[in-house]
């Protein structure tokens, strides 16, 4: 066994490696149900986190030459991130269980010594009722923290609260 390399914060200057176009997962020409996913990252005081790197990864549609499956967005002065992607379908879970359509999200920022992992589900999906991860969360408010709400024609919105009464459910993965 080799000892793991520990995580360290991304810090405030990660934009040196930023490529803003990475926030558009359809930029290579992928076809499908195009959606925008946006939201704000807020700290324990409700103040915007303006220097975060927000990353998404989705196992569906499968990554290909046309669809990277991965995106990265900065947060702006209001703490807002914004992605363009394809709406995921259901994904196989462990055993014979299906998982409801979702994205994995990782949040990196100054003040985070390691990423915060969460998931984004979509309101109105019948499969949410039987999703094994969502069903582990008993508190309805906490459960709702993982579900993006429709906004506008093809938009979904989800705010991420790092701390406090409305704290988002983060995953121990």
């Amino acid at each position: 066994m080799h000892g793991l390399t520990p995580s360290q914060t991304i810090g405030p200057y990660w934009h040196i490696i930023e490529h803003p176009e990475w926030a558009d997962l359809t930029r290579f020409g992928a076809k499908g149900e195009r959606i925008t996913l946006s939201g704000r990252i807020l700290d324990g005081d409700g103040a915007p986190v303006a220097d975060a790197a927000v990353e998404i990864w989705q196992a569906d549609p499968p990554a290909s030459e046309l669809f990277p499956g991965f995106g990265r967005s900065r947060t702006d002065a209001e703490g807002t991130f914004r992605f363009i992607t394809l709406k995921p379908g259901p994904v196989p879970g462990r055993g014979n269980v299906q998982q409801a359509p979702h994205l994995a999200m990782a949040i990196f920022a100054r003040g985070l010594l390691k990423p915060l992992f969460t998931r984004v589900y979509f309101a109105g999906e019948p499969a949410n009722e039987t999703d094994p991860l969502l069903n582990q969360i008993e508190d309805p408010l906490r459960r709702a923290s993982l579900i993006a709400q429709p906004a506008g024609q093809d938009g979904f919105v989800i705010d991420i609260h790092l701390q406090g009464a409305r704290e988002t459910v983060f995953l121990d993965i």
Binding site: G44, V49, G111, L112, L116, Q163, E167, T168, F170, L171
Partner: peptide
């Protein structure tokens, strides 16, 4: 201080 979660991770 203001950026760490206070709930147990799932």
């Amino acid at each position: 201080e203001k950026r760490h979660p206070t709930h147990k991770l799932l």
